[in-house]
């Protein structure tokens, strides 16, 4: 006999927490600015997953509306962040995140 496992919303929340902490670990460990960027995207996605799950648990569309805003902010963040990375890497082709300290006056 197979035990019928039911997928509860808590599973989604735990998955979101896992992806968030993996992204946070990557952000703290990696030195390539573009990979750090992707880790930020991972964390944002984990949060959107959590928002959608809470939206379903609470039977409220507000969570999904917030996800729309998170998407827009992520797009804006990617645009500005990549522009900064392009400007930085154009000056120093092998820059790591440590070289951003050069921006200090």
């Amino acid at each position: 006999m197979m035990v019928a496992l039911e997928v509860t919303p808590a599973w989604y929340l735990v998955l979101g927490a896992l992806i968030f902490s993996i992204g946070a670990y990557g952000l703290m460990v990696r030195r390539n600015p573009l990979v750090m960027f992707m880790c930020v995207e991972l964390m944002l996605n984990a949060v959107t997953l959590t928002f959608v799950t809470f939206s379903r648990m609470l039977r409220d569309t507000g969570g999904q509306s917030i996800v729309v805003f998170v998407l827009v902010v992520a797009a804006a963040e990617v645009v500005v962040g990549l522009a900064i990375i392009v400007a930085l890497l154009r000056k120093r082709p092998h820059a790591t995140a440590d070289d951003v300290a050069l921006l200090e006056g």
């Binding site: 992806i19 993996i22 880790c39």
Partner: peptide, 10 residues
């Protein structure tokens, strides 16, 4: 897929 992808990114 999510977890493998996330670990792959890192």
């Amino acid at each position: 897929a999510c977890l493998v992808g996330a670990l792959g990114v890192v």
